[in-house]
């Protein structure tokens, strides 16, 4: 399964934009678990995933060649 990862803000400091090729990630819940294993710093952060440019509100199936964005909240002004 090929997934393109795009990250923003503070998250981009430790997860660079990258293409991954992994097996066993069928849905966004599994992807979240994979991410937090790979990047433990995420566990203590608020962030939202977007699958193919749509915000993930519930567990969603991931298809091959999906793009997943990882977005933290910003408050600066």
């Amino acid at each position: 399964m090929k997934i393109e990862m795009i990250s923003f803000g503070k998250i981009a400091e430790f997860i660079s934009n990258q293409n991954i090729d992994v097996d066993g990630i069928a849905d966004t819940d599994a992807f979240k678990q994979y991410l937090e294993n790979q990047f433990p710093a995420l566990k203590s952060m608020k962030y939202k995933l977007a699958l193919n440019k749509n915000i993930v509100q519930e567990n969603t199936t991931i298809n091959n060649n999906a793009t997943i964005a990882i977005m933290p909240p910003f408050s600066g002004g």
Binding site: K10, K46, K48, P73, F74, S75, G76
Partner: peptide, 26 residues
């Protein structure tokens, strides 16, 4: 709140005073 249901913990996301900001961005 559809994006971020609850606020981050203090210090989780630094503000401009702590983190700096280049003037042209805002």
């Amino acid at each position: 709140r559809d994006l971020f249901p609850i606020p981050p913990d203090k210090g989780e996301i630094p503000n401009c005073a702590e983190n700096g900001v280049i003037g042209v961005l805002p």
